[in-house]
């Protein structure tokens, strides 16, 4: 097992010296590595990175996001995805390649204010993110409870191979849909939702600590199942 060292850091703090590969949120000056964010620095054989604890959502291709329709034109919807960029959902990504503007009315599919689940199909520095709703479980979200968390804490809420989601889902009987942009949609019975929201807030507050899955299990009153799966 390669050894990974961890450290809590703030911007400008020296993480380590030597010869490492930069993975994320690190700058190199000479042979010294400095953090650019507040978070948990990890360095080892693989390289140096900082897992940030706060920050905006920057879209990535293939991310599942949950967004709100804010506007539409003859060709596309404009979607607020809780980021510094407005996302576009082109009508041809919904109706197919043969879409001709004028024939279909976009409002019939998604109206302003609707919540949708979508994936980012294209994004780079020069263009705004493009969305698609093709895929299982994507499209309009008609019911559920919306909870916003910090986008940097989404990986912790999902857990290693989805362990945290599974824990919360089995403990509360709710279904969770987690957008990489920090928007979570819960559906299920009201009692379950209240419990799940509490669990999500716990994960958000203690995202930088170890043994989170166990803590959430204890909170939801689940006995450890099927051996240890601990997620660091």
């Amino acid at each position: 097992m390669p050894e990974v060292k961890r450290k809590y850091v703030i911007p400008g703090e020296l993480i380590t010296e030597g010869n490492y590969r930069i993975i994320a949120n690190v700058i190199k000056r000479g042979n010294k590595f400095y953090s650019t964010r507040i978070g948990l620095a990890e360095y080892g054989q693989e390289g140096v990175k900082v897992i940030p604890l706060t920050g905006p959502y920057v879209p990535k291709v293939d991310d599942l996001v949950i967004g709100k329709i804010v506007d539409y034109s003859a060709f596309a919807w404009e979607v607020d995805i809780n980021s510094c960029f407005m996302a576009y959902l082109p009508a041809r990504n919904v109706y197919g390649k043969n879409f001709t503007p004028g024939q279909e009315s976009l409002v019939k599919r998604f109206n302003i204010g609707d919540l949708i689940a979508a994936v980012v199909t294209a994004f780079d520095r020069t263009r705004d993110p493009i969305l698609s709703v093709a895929g299982p479980g994507l499209g309009k979200i008609s019911k559920g409870e919306v909870v916003k968390i910090s986008p940097t804490k989404v990986p912790r809420l999902i857990g290693k191979k989805g362990s945290m989601i599974r824990t919360i889902e089995s403990g509360t009987g709710c279904k969770l849909m987690i957008g990489q942009n920090g928007i979570v949609v819960l559906s299920g019975k009201p009692e379950g939702i209240i419990k799940a929201v509490k669990a999500i807030r716990l994960v958000e507050e203690e995202a930088h600590l170890a043994d989170l899955t166990q803590k959430v299990q204890a909170m939801l009153g689940i006995k450890e199942e099927g051996g240890k799966e601990g997620d660091g």
């Binding site: 911007p11 400095y34 650019t36 920050g55």
Partner: peptide, 11 residues
Amino acid sequence: LADAGISMCDL
């Protein structure tokens, strides 16, 4: 700025 999570090379 650090609290907002903006990447910066130092405080």
